Amino acid sequence: MKRCALLTTDNLEDFFVYDQMLIEPLKQYGWLAEEVSWRNRRIDWSVFDVVIIRSTWDYQQFCEEFLTCLREIDASSAQLENSLKVVEWNISKAYLKDLQNQGVSIVPTLWFESFDYAKITSGFEHFSTQEMVIKPLISANADFTYRFTRDSLVGLNNELSDVFSDREFMLQPFLPGIIDEGEYSLFYFDGNYSHAILKKPKSGDFRVQEEHGGQLETIQATEDMLTVARHSLAALPDDVLYARVDIIRHKHEFVVIEIELIEPSLYFNMDPESPQCFVDAFVTKFGKGN
């Protein structure tokens, strides 16, 4: 029986995790899967045939240590999925520039290397908006993401200056669609569409993650959604075992918020066929374990 590691972290008590839904289907194909923390420095990664990055949801706080771990896995005999090349490309949201350069529509964005209050305020005119969102280029789970108006920016100035003093960040108009309609996520395994969900924030919030009270529902993806997702996947630098394409409606078209290729929740709980769909894609790529 071959061995597969589902890469996670030490403490996920405050998160919703569904990776264990893969363990039994993988076993049916001769693969022994187990969850392993990326923080375990005693692991000999060569004992695994494949290491799948899954719920490593603290990596953004320890980016260099995380990349060091992945490079060690990549240098072992284990196959890393998604690949190190993909992770290094996807780990900074600057990859959105690559997508845009290849004709993929993204949320309008300004990019900054250092915090400058005057330049931030100029974003209101640039986007012709009353509200904006600021977020680090390396982030997850809406960490250090702020929504503000001109008035609230005054009170946030010192905090934002501290948070972004040594972080590259992006500035975007706040899109009311996130409240009115929600954010869509489309899931692909080995390039094949699996399922889609709609995520809406709880009342009074704009973050759609479950951990922040977001509400989820399974939806049927429209052809417009699928087209945006296909164009996005075609722009990736390498093949991927899994991908989540997050989109939102903006000015009567769907635009990409993010393409999650490192540690996205794949919401296996939202579609009963999705764990098997993932495992089928895995076995197509790596074969049966016995």
Rank of each mutant, 00 (worst) to 15 (best):
Q172A: 07
Q172N: 11
Q172E: 10
Q172Y: 04
P173Y: 08
F174T: 04
F174H: 09
L175I: 15
L175T: 09
P176R: 05
G177M: 04
G177N: 08
I178E: 00
I179Y: 06
D180A: 10
D180M: 08
G182P: 01
E183Q: 14
E183P: 09
Y184G: 05
Y184P: 06
Y184L: 15
Y184N: 12
Y184I: 10
S185F: 04
S185D: 02
S185R: 05
S185T: 11
L186K: 10
L186Q: 08
L186H: 12
F187P: 01
Y188T: 02
F189V: 03
F189C: 05
F189W: 12
F189A: 02
G191P: 10
G191Y: 12
G191D: 04
S194Y: 09
H195P: 06
H195C: 06
A196D: 11
A196T: 07
A196P: 09
A196I: 07
I197F: 13
L198K: 12
L198P: 04
K199S: 12
K200T: 14
P201V: 13
S203G: 08
S203I: 03
D205H: 06
F206T: 04
R207L: 14
R207I: 13
R207G: 08
R207T: 14
V208Q: 03
Q209P: 06
Q209F: 08
E210P: 15
E210N: 13
G213V: 10
G214I: 15
G214W: 13
G214H: 11
G214L: 13
Q215M: 06
Q215G: 00
Q215A: 11
L216M: 15
E217M: 14
I219R: 00
Q220T: 13
A221G: 03
A221Q: 02
E223I: 00
E223L: 04
D224Q: 10
D224E: 14
D224A: 15
M225Y: 02
M225T: 07
L226G: 02
L226F: 01
L226K: 07
L226P: 01
V228D: 01
V228P: 07
V228Q: 02
A229N: 09
A229R: 03
A229W: 03
A229I: 00
A229H: 03
A229T: 03
R230Y: 06
R230I: 00
